[in-house]
Design a protein around this nucleic acid. Structure first.
Lengths: 100, 100
DNA sequence: TTGACATGTGAGCACTCGCTCATATAAAAT
DNA sequence: ATTTTATATGAGCGAGTGCTCACATGTCAA
């Protein structure tokens, strides 16, 4: 494996881990893990402003972490694939099983 | 599971993922994955200043990601446990297998 | 159409982070 | 003892990040 390829792969890996490296984003992912939610429902549940949630959801959308569907005035978010769920669960279990 | 516990767990999970969310740190971990290295060897291999590497190694030390041993003037670093290796590998394989 | 509600977004601000630079510390070599 | 080599670390700077605030957009109800 060439050095350049390897560096690109590592850069992509960094991007992946950055998704999970913010508490608000991780709480959103954790909440969506239990099923789809509308924006305001997420904001209420996490006791965070709708704007802050919307900004983070845009990031998650751009990173292809979440999908949306419209339901009237609401936009319902859900996790895109089990790929993301798996990484989240592995990190979560590792972090909770033992001290870092 | 109470909300407070859950939040603490998520906070710890964030800390864990933050370790992997910087390219220099990930390159260090990747390099140490192949075996122990002295500080200057890491700096040379990654074409990064000794100071920058040393700062990152301090973080990795504080996070219990790496262990050290002294060999004369040199300090040799290695990964602390397979725990870290596993998470790195899973993220790496996920990031390289498909687009994010 | 108008008003109310749900979401998206740009600007700006405070904070964090990773680096450089200078210097400190420590151990070996001379 | 002095110099050289290897590593650690504090200060400070520039870039990035996550928030708030204000407002735009979009959708339904009346």
């Amino acid at each position: 494996m060439s050095k350049e390829i390897k560096l690109n792969n590592l850069t992509e890996t960094v991007q992946l881990f950055k998704i999970f490296s913010d508490l608000t984003r991780l709480r959103i992912i954790d909440l969506l893990y239990s099923g789809e939610h509308a924006v305001q429902a997420i904001a209420d549940e996490l006791d965070t402003s709708q704007s802050a949630i919307s900004h983070q959801l845009k990031l998650l959308r751009d990173m292809n972490v979440v999908k949306t569907r419209k339901a009237g005035k609401q936009v319902i978010y859900r996790l895109r694939d089990s790929h993301i769920k798996e990484i989240f669960l592995i990190g979560y279990s590792h972090a909770t099983e033992c001290e870092i």
